[in-house]
């Protein structure tokens, strides 16, 4: 980035369960997650990740002009059947099943009344909830979350904590990047500290 090495020595071994990547602003957490998601090319080193990776970044990644329901439908159809059936063995290819799953996900994340409003008319917190609703729909071998608690109110945070506990119980591999939330250590199986592009376990 600008001919400056952002990540210098990063060796992450992700296991089933919650892994936390901590670090102050500018440490390289977002770059590390984007590199794992395949959005940033590596000048050196290797990246070995499963084919199906769910990356939810610092911003919601939702297209303005679409509603949360349409966005979730798009992601679900684009990804197709995912690698892990989670919570309920549902066929994602059946239209009614798909719409039902989307409705359930919107309800769970508190978007029942907002799921048909264009994204740009939602608040930052509502957009974050819409982005996180993907967690219930796209169950992948690896999930990357960059500052997932950003913009969430107390109830939204509670929903995310609930999801994290479920993920830990089911052994879903999740990497959470966060500069705060010391409580994450309570659910994490492993934690890394990133400082100026270098990791210490």
């Amino acid at each position: 980035m600008d001919d400056r090495a952002v990540l210098r020595s990063v060796d992450l071994d992700l296991v089933p369960g919650i892994t936390v990547l901590r670090g102050p602003n500018g440490a390289g957490k977002t770059t590390a997650l984007r590199a794992l998601a395949g959005l940033v090319p590596l000048a050196r080193g290797t990246r070995e990740v499963p084919f199906d990776v769910l990356y939810i970044g610092h911003r919601p990644q939702l297209l303005h002009g679409l509603t949360p329901r349409e966005s979730l439908r798009f992601f679900l159809e684009f990804r197709g059947p995912t690698s892990r059936a989670w919570a309920t063995p549902v066929k994602t290819t059946a239209r009614e099943m798909r719409e039902d799953r989307i409705r359930v996900a919107c309800d769970r994340w508190g978007l029942a009344g907002e799921s048909d409003r264009p994204i740009e008319r939602l608040s930052a917190g509502q957009r974050r909830r819409a982005a996180l609703a993907r967690l219930d729909l796209e169950t992948c071998a690896l999930t990357l979350l960059d500052e997932p608690f950003a913009d969430l109110d107390e109830s939204g945070s509670a929903l995310l904590w609930s999801w994290l506990r479920e993920a830990r119980a089911l052994g879903v591999a999740v990497l959470v990047a966060s500069h705060g939330h010391a409580d994450l250590d309570a659910v994490a199986v492993r934690a890394y500290a990133l400082h100026e592009g270098r990791v210490a376990a």
């Binding site: 998601a37 084919f51 970044g57 610092h58 990644q61 939702l62 303005h64 990804r79 957009r127």
Partner: peptide
């Protein structure tokens, strides 16, 4: 429009 809220990354991060 893809750059607003990083919608472009949402697509690029998915297989294909």
């Amino acid at each position: 429009r893809e750059l607003e809220d990083d919608a472009l990354d949402g697509v690029l991060a998915m297989p294909g």
